[in-house]
């Protein structure tokens, strides 16, 4: 009986592992569809962040990508349905914030924003969750067109 329980546990663990893996790829595919038909997928960023503890800094994810001059890009964020926090993404050129999917002053959220790049170089994508809550999200960087 013990053996059977052990074997069943292995089977369920294996299946669970597979389901999780499928879900991650499906999330990326779904989010790239949300980016729109005119958008060509370039890169995805998958984030899973814990909640902020006490007065500590809000957890964030930082990814650095090269973007090229004269290209129009689209940045799309899809927060998981079961995520406690709502995700938002900010785009930085060195220390300068260029844009965000969440406007702090108005509280307005955007699923996507487009970026007209005029300078080839490294850009930082910072992802956080509102109010420092824990959260899971996928960010898709897509190429739209030459400017």
């Amino acid at each position: 009986m013990k053996n059977i329980t052990f074997i069943l546990a292995i089977i369920f663990l294996s299946l669970g592992y597979t389901v999780k893996a499928q879900t991650e790829a499906q999330k990326v595919e779904m989010c790239s569809k949300i980016a729109g038909q005119e958008a060509t997928y370039v890169k995805d960023i998958i984030v899973d962040l814990p909640a902020a503890q006490g007065n500590e800094k809000i957890p964030s994810s930082k990814t650095t990508l090269i973007l090229r001059k004269d290209n129009k890009y689209r940045v799309t964020i899809c927060t998981d349905d079961d995520s406690p926090g709502k995700g938002y993404v900010q785009l930085f050129d060195n220390e300068t914030m260029l844009g965000s999917s969440y406007n702090v002053s108005t509280g307005k959220e955007f699923k996507s924003f487009d970026f007209d790049c005029q300078k080839t170089g490294a850009y930082h994508f910072i992802i956080q969750f509102l109010e420092g809550k824990a959260g899971k999200a996928v960010v898709i960087i897509s190429f739209l067109k030459k400017l």
Binding site: K69, L91, D93, L98, G99, S101, F110, S112, F113, D114, F115, D116, C117, Q118, K119, T120, G121
Partner: peptide
């Protein structure tokens, strides 16, 4: 930043 038809576009004015 330009918002049009619910879509946000960020135009970089720094250029190389």
């Amino acid at each position: 930043s330009i918002e049009k038809d619910g879509m946000l576009t960020i135009k970089q004015t720094s250029k190389s």
